[in-house]
């Protein structure tokens, strides 16, 4: 299982829940499952997010495998300098 953590500003789209467990094998599947459950997240994800997998901030590649036991944090899209 993989733990997904959303930022607290998304509470209003997810009936207040911010942490999820998922068995999705990839990041893309995990995101699609979330959107299926909470359609309000669709436009947010489409607009772009940043993802930290076990602390490593990476581009949200949908094909990325989620290792068992990983902690995946979604962050509002980071913009560099």
């Amino acid at each position: 299982m993989v733990k997904i953590v959303l930022w607290s500003g998304l509470r209003r789209f997810t009936d207040g829940t911010l942490e999820f467990e998922t068995a999705a094998p990839t990041l893309g599947r995990a995101m699609a499952d979330l959107v299926a459950q909470y359609p309000g997240l669709g436009p947010i994800f489409d607009q772009g997010v940043s993802v930290a997998i076990d602390g490593d901030i990476v581009p949200p590649n949908p094909a990325m495998a989620l290792p068992d036991g990983a902690e995946v944090h979604f962050l509002q899209q980071m913009r560099g300098g």
């Binding site: 930022w7 607290s8 500003g9 209003r12 436009p43 947010i44 607009q47 962050l75 509002q76």
Partner: peptide, 21 residues
């Protein structure tokens, strides 16, 4: 404004960020 902005704010507010623990 984009999807992040809750209703009721001035149209000049175009993004809203909220997080914490």
């Amino acid at each position: 404004a984009d999807h992040s902005v809750p209703e009721g704010l001035h149209p000049n507010v175009v993004r809203y960020i909220e997080f914490g623990h």
